[in-house]
Amino acid sequence: MALPETEITLRVNGETVRKRVEPRQHLIDFLREGLDLTGSHVGCEHGVCGACTVRVDGRIVRGCLMLAVQADGRSVETIEGVSDSGELADLQHAFHQRNALQCGFCTPGMLLCAGELLATTPAATREQIREHISGNYCRCTGYQAIVDAIETTLASRRANPAGAGT
């Protein structure tokens, strides 16, 4: 069986990356296996659990429901990138303080998912928070601490818009 490969060029966490990939490789395997960015996790590979949530061109996507070749020419951000930029530092701090994680497997995806809500819906209610993260599976926490941490971060960003992130 022929295994054709295609060359792709994309930006990953601000770095330009050029790689040959099999067309069948989904983005999350490419990030993990091709680039050793193992912070994003493979959870179900059918788009249900959200553990592979990453950002492409500024929007969250399921890394298992996008091929690496589809990310050609695009900008991808992962938990490693947003951690280093400090963009979600306040949210990560709130997660830590509130113990909004146990095993941590869902956490990178959960943070990126929540980050989009922080950016787009500053006045989100608790119900809206729950709705927004309803596609991200966590088996450990029961979700409440996660909702609390996001709510806290929303409130602190509203109180101090300049202080978002770092």
Binding site: G47, R59, I60, R62, N136
Partner: peptide, 12 residues
């Protein structure tokens, strides 16, 4: 639209 799956899926 809000009934369709979840935020990340609606984005794509």
């Amino acid at each position: 639209a809000p009934h369709i799956a979840h935020a990340a899926i609606r984005n794509s």
